[in-house]
Amino acid sequence: MDLFNQDINVSPNLLPYGGTVNYYGQLFANPVADEYFDLLMNTIDWKNDEAFIMGKHIITKRKVAWYGDEAFSYTYSKATKTALPWTNELLELKHIAEQKTGTTYNSCLLNLYHNGDEGMAYHSDDERALAEHAAIASLSFGATRKFLFKHKESKEMISVFLEHGSLLVMKDETQENWLHRLPPTKKVLRQRVNLTFRTMVV
């Protein structure tokens, strides 16, 4: 059985200006992607996400996990997480993402969406703890979901569907100029796991 999809065609830049986003499509053959999905569901230390918005402590249905080379601290939405040691499966996926993108990553933020009701509002991954202009490699397993980009000034929008076992890479000035989100949808009933491999400033 082939581990990887042999028909990968990396997209040209999805953004018209102000950044670089490439979609690699489905990296893995479906049985391999299914196996990784099951492993991630059962081996990751999932916790409900927390945020402090307008002075209120919000606990989301969506679950998250944070892993890295060291016990990095990562703060977003005024909540701080400390990275856990890599699992074997995460190290395998990190190595694959590094091979495909030619970039080295030292951490990974994971999100678990139970169904289409759960999403993510527009935001940029521009926290000071992240290396400026560094690539962020996003691996998706499970349900196919629409992913949106919106330019911060022109409000121009770009969409792409992230498939089971697929890879999307954001780099260069993308976080400076574009917002991105995972919109909720009633059409999706399956779970989705998303891994975003990142480079923290040490």
Score class of each variant (00 low, 15 high):
D2A: 14
L3N: 09
Q6R: 15
T20L: 15
Y23M: 11
L27H: 03
F28D: 00
F28A: 09
A29Q: 12
A29Y: 10
V32I: 08
D34E: 13
D34V: 02
Y36C: 00
L40I: 04
N42V: 08
W46F: 08
D49A: 13
H57C: 11
I58G: 11
I58S: 14
R62M: 13
V64F: 03
V64A: 05
Y67S: 10
F72D: 11
F72Q: 04
F72W: 08
Y74T: 01
T80Q: 09
P85F: 09
T87V: 06
E89V: 09
L90A: 03
E92F: 12
E92N: 11
L93Y: 00
E98A: 10
T101E: 04
G102N: 13
S107D: 09
C108S: 05
N111L: 05
Y113M: 07
N115V: 07
G116I: 05
G119L: 05
A121D: 14
H123F: 10
S124Y: 06
E127C: 10
A134E: 06
L139N: 00
G142F: 00
F147R: 00
L148Y: 06
M157Y: 11
I158T: 04
V160W: 00
L162H: 02
L168W: 02
L168A: 04
M170L: 07
K171Y: 11
L189E: 09
N194C: 03
R198T: 01
R198S: 08
R198G: 07
V201M: 13
V201R: 15
